[in-house]
């Protein structure tokens, strides 16, 4: 199902609202207030959101504002520390590198995922024999458990016995210590993450391409536009709304990537692939003595970044829905 058809079905459902509502009230005169019923059906999800979303988030904020030790964590009588944990985090020697790695990881991943995803979407835009099947197979990396992808890439990138170094060896490039050297570990996890993210970009951009009316291309062909001209003058501008959505959602999802990095490198060696997500995990769970306060503080910085882009995404999407 494409995004656009879904949107259309949605919008038509909404515009026909008042008529249906009138019809419903007529046939429904004897029952209780519709609003009462509507909210009764929403009760489970609201209770769920309060207990299993709002409360953990509140606990997380609270963790970041108190000075926890293992003992006070269990007993729950940690002294209030204000923004002490945040000050500690900002002053930490890990802060600047982790911020930089988070930015590099996110931007480089996105740039490649988007470019490759777009190229594939254009390639698949016109049907050919087997195209639907092959397109479905391209979803596999997105569906696999992250631990499966991460451990497979770990072995492929193994310095001595990995297939990647074997292939590089054929073209005369010496063995690269992908996961064990500080220069390469960040790039290793980026490569694996690009692979995992391509399907997401492909699917979104493909559905965007399907929404461009063929008549536009016919007109461009009549005007004698060449292949590249058609792409840069027609496809690319018309795809801009979908591209914006794809990139912003990608930003939100890439910022929070944890599994891949932790499983492949644990953020190392010596912090060379540590991002905010893995740093937060290491503070909270990675050491023998947990430091939940600073860990929660790093997590909350991450959530602020993710939500900033998330709100931007929703804003852009809403605006598109109106036009």
């Amino acid at each position: 199902m494409s995004l656009s058809t879904r949107t259309r079905a949605r919008d038509s459902g909404r515009t026909s609202g008042p008529g249906h509502r009138a019809a419903r009230t007529r046939g429904h005169r004897h029952s209780r207030s519709p609003q009462w019923t509507a909210w009764a059906f929403l009760t489970p999800v609201i209770a769920y959101l309060l207990i299993f979303y709002a409360y953990p988030l509140y606990r997380n904020v609270e963790l970041s504002l108190r000075d926890y030790t293992v003992r006070s964590f269990v007993q729950g009588d940690a002294p209030f520390a204000g923004f002490g944990n945040y000050a500690k985090v900002f002053a930490d020697a890990t802060f600047a590198p982790a911020l930089w790695h988070t930015i590099v990881f996110t931007l480089v991943s996105l740039a490649f995922q988007f470019t490759i995803g777009l190229a594939l979407a254009v390639f698949f835009a016109r049907n050919f024999r087997l195209s639907a099947t092959l397109r479905a197979l391209f979803l596999v990396p997105w569906l696999l458990p992250l631990i499966v992808s991460a451990s497979t890439w770990s072995w492929m990138l193994n310095s001595d016995s990995g297939v990647v170094n074997a292939v590089l060896g054929w073209i005369g490039i010496g063995p690269v210590n992908w996961l064990t050297s500080p220069e390469w570990s960040l790039w290793s996890v980026i490569i694996a993450n690009i692979w995992i993210g391509i399907p997401f970009n492909l699917v979104l951009l493909y559905s965007g391409l399907q929404a461009i009316p063929p008549a536009v291309y016919e007109a461009a062909a009549l005007d004698g536009a060449s292949g590249p001209q058609r792409f840069w003058r027609v496809t690319f501008p018309l795809l801009r709304p979908v591209s914006a959505i794809t990139i912003l959602l990608g930003l939100v999802y890439t910022l929070k990537v944890f599994d891949i990095i932790w499983i492949m490198t644990k953020g190392g060696p010596s912090g060379a692939s540590t991002t905010f997500a893995t740093w937060s995990y290491r503070l909270g769970f990675g050491n023998l003595v947990p430091s939940f306060g600073p860990g929660a503080a790093v997590g909350n910085l991450l959530i602020v970044m993710a939500l900033a882009f998330g709100l931007l995404y929703i804003r852009i999407q809403r605006r598109q829905a109106l036009t």
Partner: peptide
């Protein structure tokens, strides 16, 4: 508003939920 909250909820990084859940 509820749909909006659900959309936002999808964007919360797992590590943050994990730490909150751990305490609870």
């Amino acid at each position: 508003l509820l749909s909006f909250v659900l959309l936002i909820a999808q964007m919360i990084p797992g590590i943050i939920m994990a730490m909150g859940f751990y305490a609870i």
